[in-house]
Amino acid sequence: MSAPTTPGTQTSTAPAPRPPEVQRVRGSRRHEIERRSLRILRWVVIIGLLIVTLLPFYYMVLLSLRPIEALLRNPSSLIIPPAEFTLSSYQQVLASTAAGGQGFGRFIANSALVAVSAVIISLIVAVPGAYAIARLPFFGHRQVNALFLAAYLFPAIVMAIPLFVLFTRVGLRGSLVGLILVYIAQTVPVAIYMLRNYLDTVPVAVEEAGLVDGLTRIGVLRRISLPLVMPSIMATGLFIFMIAWNEFLFALLFLVERRESWTVSLGLSQLSGSAEIPTTVLMAGSVVLTLPILILFFSTERLLTGGLTAGAEKG
């Protein structure tokens, strides 16, 4: 195939031989049909997917703001008449059990404690680790890297049984500390993978300049590389927060018997099975569970998605 000349360079050379006229007409008509239907199809796809992705979230918010009686009377309504609007579901779900609520206030505190601790400790451990993998040629470099990748890909259900037994034996099951430990182990490999991609973007020459000026490796990491990738470290931290906040299986296995230690995810899943609690109240619980994550995610979206898909551009 001869390379097409770009419009700017096409000056004195003779025009390339064109295909026969008949074919061009047939081709262009087919193109026109395809182009038009694709233009329509594209908007059908976009609008269809928008409805499918947004409707459940809209429905969640909608139900949390309507009284249960109104929902049962008119289940298919997609708007809230002003007279029906109420925040009582939120009051009920957040109030402590002593005050007749569902105690989600407590669950939020637990979730926040677990997630924030996991973020801080994971980052303290993973930043140096990622730097070592990105920059330092130590013995067993490849093996360690493969181990982390495998740990990242290994699913929770396979890890659940041995960790359940292990943590029961050391007496950490049923405590938030045990859960934090598991979350650290679950998030460190992802954090290393993301941070490595970010640290790779720091030019080696900048670091070498620091070394020449008499800094140690640790000094280079602290004074040069870390400040340069600080926004990315924040993004990684937020990603860890999301994983820990959303996690369900280990919270279920470790904490199910102790209501005062439940996380929001566990609380919602446990209470959604009971018939006494109105769906609208639990929907308020869902909103409470979902909102922090959405705010965090969309405030850092660009950085996060960039770090996760960094390998994909290379194809």
Binding site: Y131, L147, V182
Partner: peptide, 24 residues
């Protein structure tokens, strides 16, 4: 550099070994 690398790496390695590899 290699020695620093191992030092920086080891906390991560210990955690992954203790909470992923050994339980497996």
């Amino acid at each position: 550099d290699a020695r620093t690398g191992i030092a920086l790496m080891s906390p991560t390695l210990i955690i992954v070994l203790a909470v992923v590899v050994v339980p497996l």
